[in-house]
Amino acid sequence: MAGASKAVADSRANLPFVYRQYSAEQLKQVLYKMYLIRRFEEGAEESYMRGLIHGTMHLSIGQEASAMGICMPLGEDDQITSTHRGHGHCIAKGAEVKRMFAEFFGKTTGYCKGRGGSMHIADVAKGNLGANGIVGGGIPIAVGAALSSKMMKTGKVVVSFFGDGANNEGAFHEALNMAAVWKLPVIFVCENNGYGMSTSTARSTAVKNIADRAAAYSMPGVIVNGNIFSEVAEASHKAVERARAGEGPTLIESKTYRHRGHSKSDRNRYRTKEEIEDWMSNRDPITLFENELREFGFIDGPGIEAIREAVAREIADGIEFAKVSPSPDVRETGNYVYTEQA
């Protein structure tokens, strides 16, 4: 327990997991990053509206606690595969927002040098093996990364993020089965936000909970409230310990909600305004975490204000960095198709 004295530890004994496990500084950093994810996506959305970003994007606003909670127990060497709704995962794993903005703006300073955009954002140096435009595409790849970890004895744990939609893809089932048969150090994280594009899980999925599917692959299936940071982090912590001990994979279902539509083309006709409003007003993950931090005395009003201001500065600087960065040369369109060889 970094930084917490025995007296402090005793005073925290009845608090939820993360308040026992992490220092006040670490927890404030989590709040900072949750705001960073939120403001990054709002900044990206605004830049899109102003015509500075083309294509489309899939915002995870409302799912910040899930990304942060899962990544909390991971080390820098641990790896993740992410999804089309992956900005939060990328930031939670340690990416810099300025290089993410640069990627969205299609600039050479972006993580993918302007070749990937929102749907392929990656930060390999920090262990993010990439978002994925194919639903379920990253799940077998994560199992492969976990196989590498086992074969090379690196001790790395791999997390595969995917949505509720992916649990009906064949890749999900094939990957979970192999990971269980081979006892690989991988954690499957289903961020169930209730809808695969417009189709609710009730209409698409035969089981009530996606975690129920874990039983078919002889692994623990854990359901957490994805909007409560501590719940998510605790489940992730246990799954990481299990993976590192060589006991195999875990399926975590993180029940959450996206405030925005599926993508920029969404008219939100499949859900009610009341439903959206309820999640935004009563179950916002940042508000819930902030309230807990205050209640348990980890932060005060000015402390929160300082975080919000620092995040706003980082976002503004990031957008400016993206704007002034150079665009790729069209003569280099053919680069990176193959590995350049001497």
Binding site: P140, G144, A145, L147, N177
Partner: peptide, 28 residues
């Protein structure tokens, strides 16, 4: 059997595992 791995009959998943392993330093 550690280096000659029988996979289940899962072509999509198996190919994906090979891709993931290659991406992270192995030569499947």
């Amino acid at each position: 059997t550690e280096r000659v791995i029988d996979t289940p009959i899962s072509e999509l998943g198996g190919a994906g595992v090979a891709v993931g392993a290659a991406l992270t330093g192995m030569r499947p």
